[in-house]
Write a protein that binds this DNA or RNA. Structure first.
Lengths: 394, 394
DNA sequence: GTGTTGGCGAGGCGCCGACAA
DNA sequence: TTGTCGGCGCCTCGCCAACAC
């Protein structure tokens, strides 16, 4: 095994994006990015020992993104990316460079040919059945012969590891509805699914049906440095979550980056921790703004069913370096913010400039006439960063 | 969680030793040891990137062993030790120091009050029962009231995490035998036990019954650098084994050791990889020998049931540094050897001097009149190092 | 003394339509 | 349209003595 780890199979990028969520974008191959050791450390599960003494690790390092492996955790099916970066000289970047084209294809394709559903109690606990929303059955699943009574078929779906799962798909009951019966319970048990987790069905370009998992976010790891830590992944031993990004690998990546050697990082898009590999264009663009307190901004998030993108609104309360001791020149989490709906993101006090978008400064009305969201969204207490997803109840 | 990792509960050292096997000894607290980055790297699951350039990491580093945490993997129950080391100056060790006293207590106590059995097919697969060897039932288990018919009791055993498991212990059948029925099947499933794995029952000093696990060795990780790699842990996804000691933590330990700062290592005694933290006395003692080809030696191993220690015999074929490029002055695996029974340890070509014991040179007789072992032992194809254990069939 | 087998009993898993939101 | 519930059939899990070595 060990030696083979590097040879782990890559995932269909489309399925990867369907599982990661609509707001997750990996910068294109060979594009320029900034690597933030500070953010990498937040992505890890414990205190990082940056050994260099005196500290010679810059707060951000310009790199070329030379490779991306789209992968999935063997236990939890959670998607992650292994990204290879080659440090560049700081003056290799021209802030006026164009935004790199392309990419976003897998992204959009994934959104169109996939469907996500959050498991109900009945889906997860009771007699082993899964209630298939009509839209999913009719647009994602293979066509069902409605002339037989009852209409039944066996559907086969491949998970993120390429393993096939069989389900009996039946259309029955009064009123009629689509159900997965035989096979579903086994899947729930094997994958240790719980009510609140989501599953993603996707039709791949070759016509195969795929099935992915989005674990419910119960905090995840990588909470802001000042806000304590998450609770681990429900249904799995905490140790599992804890091993995802070990502090030593952050220290090694930072050390290699600092001396200009190629290095690799692992990024879990659904870990509620912000991306620490940031498109150079996006960063430099955001730093052209003269950030100051009082500015109004919005931050995108995705609704649970991936059907639309909504926005959190807020006001900048303070522009201040997050860690003046170690990274005095870092834009990481530069903005201290106040949210319009503070109960939803109470753990998020600071965000990085490139995550938000300025909005025209309209004098606030108290109380506001319109909530920016039609339904009052509920976010888990530890939801942290963009992209975030709303936990929405039906 | 994350932050709490360091606070993981420690194990009863006696149970730890019962699970680790009779030949595993951790050097005493505050004793002097040598740390081998080379051996640490073998203990890891992938290629280690020792960053220092040029390479300033010595092949072995004198340290004081300042702390040991006896621990167990949350998933597999496999025992491991987290050892804290503080580098010393090389001249802080006097080769004529006495062998440190004490220790070995947990060791011997564990051997006396514990019993190990390798699971048969029937124990692991069939109708949920476990056949308890009479000796185990009579000396380790609580006393059974034989006057009732049938004699039954509920026994409670704590696993390495302190979790209690209940079993129905019954004495029945013709001929009479001790069995564990209700509760056993659940235990097998939860712990993912398979035929070939061993369980250890131990009576702790406070009278509590404990139950530990020794997974069957199907190679494990850390095979010799030149002999390919193991197959991972049966019944668990390979990723689990692969995460035990990540290369980055080896790199970090070696880097800290090289600059004289305290560091921690994790050691899995049952990983079929040799100890890389070696008692300084033991090492210096072994290096007083003028090793040369042709010398006869023996290496201890433990029989599967832990009841006795046996020896592998062999002849030194060559005395040669294992890695002349990186560690030209290292005694690690200095001895290239030929075994008397080469089929048993065919993967072990090189051993370190402190693992073996010279034996008086008796002219070899071909064919030998006596096998050094009464029964011909069978060892797994990838059994690697001392201490090793013999897979013995009843 | 203990590993393996087949019998057989009971309990829980999983399929179902009836509701209701 | 779809989440939840109670009913109930079946099948697998697990207890057991009979054998075998």
């Amino acid at each position: 095994m060990k030696m083979m780890d590097k040879a782990e199979k890559c995932l269909d990028p489309q399925l990867w994006h369907a599982c990661a969520g609509g707001l997750v974008q990996i910068p294109p191959l060979n594009s320029k990015v900034f690597y933030f050791p500070q953010g990498h450390a937040e992505h890890s599960n414990g205190p990082v020992c940056f050994m260099a003494s005196p500290n010679i690790i810059p707060s951000f390092i310009l790199c070329k993104l030379t490779a991306v492996n789209y992968m999935a955790d063997r236990y939890t099916d959670e998607v992650f990316a292994r990204i290879t970066l080659v440090p560049l000289k700081a003056d290799d970047f021209d802030p006026d460079d164009d935004w790199p084209k392309m990419a976003h294809q897998n992204h959009e394709k994934a959104a169109k040919s996939s469907f996500a559903k959050t498991l109900t109690q009945s889906d997860a606990n009771n007699g082993g059945g899964f209630s298939v929303p009509r839209y999913c059955a009719e647009t994602i699943f293979p066509g069902l012969d409605y002339s037989s009574k009852p209409p039944v078929q066996t559907i086969v779906a491949k998970d993120v590891h390429g393993e096939s799962w069989k389900f009996r798909h039946i259309y029955r009951g009064t009123p009629r509805r689509h159900l997965l019966t035989t096979g579903w319970s086994n899947f729930v048990n094997q994958k240790k699914l719980m009510a609140g987790d989501s599953i993603v069905f996707m039709r791949a370009e070759n016509g195969e049906l795929c099935i992915g998992i989005r674990r419910a976010k119960l905090g995840g790891f990588g909470g802001g440095p000042e806000f304590g830590v998450g609770q681990g992944l429900k249904g799995f031993d905490d140790a599992d979550g804890a091993r995802k990004v070990v502090p030593e690998s952050v220290a090694q990546a930072a050390a290699l980056a600092a001396i200009g050697r190629q290095f690799e990082v692992v990024y879990y898009p659904r870990a509620s921790a912000p991306e620490f590999v940031v498109s150079a264009y996006s960063l430099s663009h955001s730093m052209k703004v003269q950030w100051s307190s009082g500015m109004r901004f919005k931050m995108p998030f995705e609704t649970e069913d991936s059907s639309r993108i909504s926005w959190f609104m807020g006001t900048i309360s303070l522009v201040q370096v997050a860690d003046p001791i170690r990274w005095p020149d870092s834009p990481w989490r530069l903005l201290q913010v106040a949210w319009d709906e503070p109960d939803l993101l109470q753990n998020v006090r600071r965000v990085s400039p490139w995550l938000v978008e300025l909005v025209p400064e309209i004098p606030t009305i108290h109380p506001p006439l319109f909530s920016p969201l039609r339904k009052k969204p509920r976010a888990s207490a530890t939801t942290d960063f963009s992209p975030v997803e709303q936990v929405q109840h039906h």
